[in-house]
Every structure is written in C-alpha cells, then in structure tokens.
Simulated assay, not measured.
Amino acid sequence: MVKIADVARHAKVSPSTVSYALSGKRPISPQTRQRIEESIRVLGYRPHAGARSLASSQSRVLALVLPLRKGVHVPVLMQFATSVLTAAREHNHDVLLLAQDEGDEGIVRVAKSAMADAFIIMDVELEDRRLPLLRTLDQPSVLIGFPADPTGLTCVDLDFRGAGEACVEHLAALGHRSVALIGSPPEVYLRGTGFARRVTAGFTAAADRLGMRSIAHPCPETPAAARAMAERLIREDPSLTAVVVHNESVIQPLIAAFTAMGLRVPQDLSVIAICPDETAEQALVPITSVSIPSDEIGTRAVGLLMAKLVGRDAPETTVLPARLTPRSTTAPPGSL
C-alpha cells in the first residue's frame, strides 16, 4: 500500500508538505503542489476519504440537481446520473442526488449545510430561475445544458441545435424534400427547456436553408399519442417522406404506427432519432441517429468541477459536436 512517505520521496518533499497539500492547512506553492499531485497520480496513492474530509473541511460530495419533472425521460436521465457518479468516484467523491423540483430551495439547503462541495445542475431552462443563486454561491457549479445567457457560468452539453441541423442535412442529401420533427412532450417546451428548443431551432433553420417543407410538433410520451401523431402528420402532409424524433419514449410506437398505416421504413418513410446509441442500436431495426453522449457529458462535467475545486481555470462553455450514425431506417425516398 502506497503511503504519504512514498509520495514525499517521489515528489522530493517532506511528508509534512504532502500532508499540508492534502489537507489545505498551509499554503503550498503551485509548483510544489503540481509535483505532489503528479506523484500521487503516478504512485496511485489514495488518502483515506474520511480523514481528508475532516482535515480539509470538505465533504468530498458533489450534489447532482436532477429534478424529475413531468415530461422527462427517466432512463436517459439515469444514464447521465450514472456517468456523473462513475466520474466522481474516480476523483474520490460521492454524489448526493437532488431529484425533487425544489428550485432554489434545495440548492440553498445543501449549500448552507455544507453537505456538498459543488453542484452539477441538469434540466436547464433558457430562463432558469436557479441561475442568479448559482452565480452567488461559494460552492462552484457546472450546468449540463445551456441557458439563454451563460455569462459567468460553466456549461457543458451536446450541440442540440447542430443535432437538429445534422438530421435535416442527412435527409436532404438522400433526396427528401418534406420532413417532420416529432419533439419532446409539450410541458418540456412550456418550461423553456434549452435542449428541446435548440433542436427545433436547428431543425427548422436547416429545412428553411435547404428549401424543404417542414412541420414540427411536440408529442406526449405515450403509445396512444404516438399513434395519433403519426396519423396527424400524414394527414397534414401526404407527401411526407421523413421524420426526425426527439422523444425517446415514442420512437418504437411511432415506427409501429407508421407500419400499421402501410408505410415501410425506410422505403416509404425514413426515420432519424436523437437518442442514446443504445436505444438506436438495440431497436428491432437499428435506427439512424444522432447520439446523446451521456457518458462523455457527465465525465466532462465532473472534470470541470474538479478543476474549479482546486482553483484551476475551467472554460465557460464546452459544446460536444453532434455526430450522426446512419443505420437501417434512412434511405432515398421511394427506394426499393
């Protein structure tokens, strides 16, 4: 087992200097701290978490604010939560999950009680009521998502506008001229949730730029709503040849509904989803999709927080590019 003395020898400092670097009881020069941190990494030293917390007055806990609101797709949210938990453990931190929609109140309660050293905020709205508070807290925070004004905040997310654009561009390249977006449940848009609004904006802008007919509708997350939406789209535009789905709950019910109407996928109707790769790959017919990289986003969010906790600079915005993977549900219109 690696001990403090081993770290001290490797970093060419005294054991007390290593102890001070870990506890924060005395100031250590940046050069010395960097050397100690490198020795800890190389040797694989793991200080006792309880002892470090007591010595440094840190909880070594990250609070993940993930309100389970109406219209959210819980399986995808849990993928984000798992990625945050896994990344936090790699940094010897635990995660406190705040799943109730408490607004400021839950964050204030945790901040005042020192239960957590920092916050990761999810389900970010364009005009999010939590932002003024986050800008004033002593504890650092990272948002998974972008508000309308991210000034003074640290945000990371997929380029959801780019995701909407990528779907339309892929379909246009295949020769489609009429496309529909089946979006998130209505309440998600009513809350002004950033990712949903950005997908719609990107979808509409790309269709307009490419001279395509387009329609976009929110869709409740039930099979009955999916069937009704399929019928509505064909009724509104009988020439429709492609749909983009940004609503994980209704992807399979929609495909089943279109099939029941006599439309073959992809020969008569191409389908693209914005969803996790697992959802697209494990479907009965693998679905062309833009991936939601929950693992990478969660890992990036934790990494940004770790940098802020030790006083290092962190970029205000981290945007992951949209990546489309063609599979079996898209083809030129009218293909055999």
Rank of each mutant, 00 (worst) to 15 (best):
L181S: 02
L158W: 10
A148S: 14
V168S: 03
A148W: 06
R130V: 07
L133W: 11
G183E: 05
H170E: 14
Q139I: 06
R197T: 11
Y189R: 09
T193V: 10
L158P: 03
A196K: 08
D123P: 00
L158E: 02
G192W: 08
E125P: 00
A148E: 15
P150Q: 12
L131G: 01
I144C: 12
F146C: 00
A201P: 00
T154H: 15
E169N: 13
E169P: 00
L133Y: 11
F203W: 06
R135S: 05
D157E: 14
L153H: 09
I182F: 02
A163F: 08
S184P: 00
R198E: 14
P185C: 04
L133F: 09
V199P: 01
G183Y: 10
V179A: 07
E169C: 06
L133E: 04
T136S: 15
T151Y: 02
E165H: 09
L131C: 09
T136N: 13
G152N: 08
E169I: 07
L134G: 02
R191Y: 03
A180M: 04
R130P: 05
C155D: 06
T154G: 00
S178W: 01
G183W: 07
P186F: 05
A163P: 04
I182P: 00
G202R: 10
P150V: 12
Y189D: 01
A148L: 15
G194W: 08
R129I: 09
V199D: 01
L126M: 13
D128V: 12
V188L: 02
L131T: 14
L171W: 10
R197F: 11
G194V: 10
V199K: 03
E187K: 03
P185T: 07
L134K: 03
I182Q: 01
L153T: 13
I182C: 13
A163D: 05
H176C: 02
A148V: 06
A172G: 02
L190E: 15
E127M: 10
V188G: 00
R191N: 01
P150R: 12
F195Y: 15
F195E: 13
H176Y: 11
R130I: 10
L174V: 05
V168I: 05
R191G: 00
Q139K: 09
T151A: 14
I182H: 01
A172N: 06
V168T: 03
V188Q: 04
A163E: 07
P147W: 11
D128K: 13
G162C: 03
F203Y: 08
F160K: 06
G152V: 11
H170G: 01
V124M: 10
G145V: 13
G192Q: 08
L153D: 05
V142M: 03
R129T: 12
D149Q: 12
G194Y: 07
G202S: 03
G164R: 11
V156H: 06
L126F: 04
F146G: 04
G192T: 10
P186L: 03
G194P: 03
E125G: 04
V188E: 06
L143S: 03
